[in-house]
Write a protein that binds this DNA or RNA. Sequence first.
RNA 1: GCGGGCGUGAUGGAACGGUAGACAUAGGGGACUUAAACUCCCCAGGGGGAAACCCCGUGCGGGUUCGAAUCCCGCCGCCCGCACCA
Length: 850
Amino acid sequence: MARYDAAQIEQKWQKAWSEAGCFTARRDDTKPKYYVLEMFPYPSGNLHIGHVRNYTMGDVVARYKMSTGHAVLHPMGWDAFGLPAENAAMERKVHPGDWTYQNIANMKAQFARLGLTLDWSREFATCDPEYYGQQQAMFIDFLEKGLVYRKNAVVNWDPVDMTVLANEQVEDGRGWRSGALVERRELTQWFFKISDYAEDLLEALDRLENWPDKVRTMQKNWIGRSRGLQFAFDLSDRDDKVEVYTTRPDTLLGASFVGISPDHPLARELEASNPDLAAFNAECRKMGTAEEELEKAEKRGFDTGLKARHPLDPSWELPVYVANFILMDYGTGAIFGCPAHDPRDLEFARKYDLPVKSTFVPMNGPHTAPEDKGEPFVPPKTETVRYTRIVAGAAEQTGDAAIDAAIDRAESEGWGQGVTKFRLRDWGLSRQRYWGCPIPVLHCDACGVVPEKKENLPVELPRDVDFDTPGNPLDRHPTWRDVPCPQCGGAAKRETDTMDTFVDSSWYYARFTSPGATTPTDAGEADYWMNVDQYIGGVEHAILHLLYSRFFARAMHACGHLPASAIEPFDALFTQGMVTHEIYQTEDATGRKTYYLPSEVERREGGAFLKDGTQVQVIPSAKMSKSKRNVVDPVEIIDRFGADTARWFVLSDSPPERDVEWTEAGAEAASKHLARVWRIAEGARDAPETGGDDETLLREMHKAIHDVTVNIESFGFNAAIARLYAFANTLSKSQAGRQAQVKAARTLAQLMAPMTPHLSEELWRMLGGEGLVTTAAWPKADPAMLVEDEVTMPIQVNGKRRDEIRVAKDAPKHQVEALALASDAVQRQLAGATPKKVIVVPGKIVNVVV
RNA sequence: GCGGGCGUGAUGGAACGGUAGACAUAGGGGACUUAAACUCCCCAGGGGGAAACCCCGUGCGGGUUCGAAUCCCGCCGCCCGCACCA
C-alpha cells in the first residue's frame, strides 16, 4: 500500500508520455483538428504562478480535446525581444542575447515539470534569426503593398540619457533612470497602416461570437468609428481658416471658443512671434506622450487673441485658444468648445470665463442649467430632447436626428461635410533600441529608402555591442550600419530602428503551423491548422495585442501568407484572471519602499514579520509582479507538493476569468485532497466483492461525467473541480460492490486527468485501465442514468420559500398546485385568506401569491 | 479623465430571473492516539427562540417582476486598458 508520492509518479508518467510521443501534433485526416494556444511568455527567467494557471487552463483544454478524438496542436515559444534584456545588459554587463537564451533554458526546465501537453518540436523564440528573418521578409512585402510608411511622431525623450523612453519608463514626468525631465521630441518613424482596415476590424467583431463581449466592446470603442461634421472657421483678422471636426454639430449654436492643439500648425506658426505662447506650448510639450497623462492634467489654455467667425452668424466671433487637452492625432487637431454639453469644455469655460449656452434641455423634469453652475447636460444621443437653439430639424428630436439634420444643412449650404472618422491611429512600430527585430531597409543618398534584398535576410543583429554609452548601440556600430546600397551599390546606412515587440507577437500563432518553413508560413500547413480554435491569455491584452494580431492576419493574407479563412486568427478567446498575492513592504525615513518575497515573510499574530523580527506592512492582494516581489515560485510549490497539486489549486476556487489569490493554505488543501483521492481509489480496489446499492453510485457517476464534461467545455474549471470533490465524497461513502466502486474510481481518475494527469495515470493503472488515460476515450454519460422520476419543488408564498414537496417529474399543474396549497406551512402563511394567484413552473417552483 | 469589468458568510466562491451560500479554506466539537500529526465523523450567514419556527441578509439607494445576487437607473469601492511594459 504505497503512499501518494507526487515526485516519483510525475517523473515516471512524463517519461512515459514522452516515449509514446503523445503530444507531437500530427495531421490526421480521420480526425477533426484542434489548435489550442496560450499567449506565449516573455522569458523573464522564471515561470511564475500566473503562467502555471494560464498554461494549465490550455492544457486542460488540450487534454480534453485529445481524449475526444481531435488531432491537437498545442505549441509553445518565447516572446523574446524587449526592454528587460537591455536593462539586464546595462545593469549586469551581460549580452541581451545570452541573458535571454539563458532565461529560456531556465524556464523550459520549469515548464517540463508541469506535465503539459506541449509539442516542443515546434518551439521557437522571436529573437531567433530564423523567426525574425521571416518577419523582415513580411515587412518588405507589406512595404510593397503600401501597408508600411514613414511619418513624424512624438516620443518621450530623455535629454540626459539621450534616449527614447517607453511610457512605462516615465515616472512623474521624469526618466526613471536619469531623473531628468522628459521632453516630447519628434522623430521620423515607421508605421503600419492599420487604419486601412479600421472599418473591417470593426465590422468583423460582430462575427467573433466566441470572444468575450467585453473584449469586443473594448475593441469597438478603441477603433471608435464616429460620424461627424467637418468644417472650417474663418478667422476674422487674417486670411486663414481653422478646420475642425465635431461629433455634435447639433450643438454648434452653443459654441463658445475654438480650441487647437499645441502641436497644430497654426499654434506652431504663432509661437514664432509670441514668446508667451511659445512658453505655453513648450510647457505642454513637457508632458509625456501617454494619453492618460494628458487627460488627467489640469485643463489649460492660451488665448491667441485671434477670433473665429461662427459659420451660422458671421458677426458672432469666438476666441481661439491653444488648449493642452486637444490631441493633434485625433480629428483635425482643432475643435469648437460647447461647454453646456461637454464636461471638459465646461471646466475650460469656467476657468477662462467663457460663455455657457445650452442648445437643448431635457424633455421633462427639473434641470439645473449648466449656465447656472449646473452639470453639463450630456444625454445619450438616442434620447429625445428639446432644442432651444436649433441648427436644423425639429424642436423635439433625438441627438442622432439633430446631428444628421445639422450635417445635411451644412452640406446643402456648402460650408461643411459629414465625414466618418476613426479614433484608431496607425501603429507606430519604430523603436530606437537594440534588442528587437531590425527593420530591413537602408537609407541611400541616391535612392532614398531601399528595402534589403530578400536573399540577404535575415538582417541579423550584430553581437559586438556595448551598453556603456547612452543611446541605441546600432547607431554607433559603423561596420553593421554602413553598408552599400542594395540598389545602386553606393554608400548607404541601415535603418537602426528595430520593431515594436508587438510585431513579433502578431503572427507567432501562424508560424507555429510550420516553424521550420523557409517562407513565413507554409500554405498547406497554415490551411490545415489555422485558425487557433481556442486562444487563452490575460485580459490586459484585450486591445493592443489582439487588435494588432487581427490586423496582421489581414495583412499577411493580402501578401499571400495566410488563407482568407484565417484573417480572424482566433476563433474563440478566453481571458483568464490574474493570480494575486499580498504585498509585503517596509518604508525608510525618506519614504523609499523595500519589498519582500512571501517566502521571506512569516505571518503570525499581530501582523507579518521578517525572520529578524522586523514588522512589514501588508498591502492587500495585487497582481503578482517582480517589482513588488509578491511572487510565489512554482518550482518551490512543485518541489513541496507536486505539479498536480499546483495545477489543481490554480484551477479550483476561482472562476478562470476572475483573479485568484494564492494562499499557502489552499495549496496544502489541494495536496491533501489528491492524497485522499489516492486512498479512495485504493479503498475501491480493495472493496468487498459484493455490497449494497451499486445503482446509486453508478447513477452518481453518470451525473458526474455529465456535469464535469459540461463544465470543462464551458471553461468552468472551478465548477468541474467542485463537482469532482462532491463525486469523491460520494464514492468514499459508498458501500457498493468492488466492481462498481472500481468503475466509479476509474472514472473519477479519468475525469480528473485534464487537471491532474500524473495522479490520474497512476490510478488508472492501479484500477486496471487499459493503456494511458491520456490517450483513452473520454467517458460518455448514459442519458438513461441521468433522468430522475421525482423532483423536489420549493413552495414560495409571496416569493419567500416556506416549504417543499416531492412530486413526480411530470405531475400535472393542478396536482402540484393542490399539493402546495395543502402544505401546513402554506396554510399557516395564508391564515385563512384565499390566494390571489398560484404560479406553478413545472419541475421548478410554486409561488402562492396572497 | 476616458473605455471595459467586478463587488455574495471569517475566506475563495456556487446559484438557465425560480430553495442564496453548492464545493472548498480557516474555525468549533467529537472519534482514533500515551500525546501530537495524519485520518474519519459532526456543526457552522447574522439575530431571536427550549423547539416548531420567525425576522434580517448578495457594496449603497431606487425601479421592473408573482419572484431579482441575476434585468434597468443612479451612486460608492476595487481591478484592467489608454497606443514605446509584455
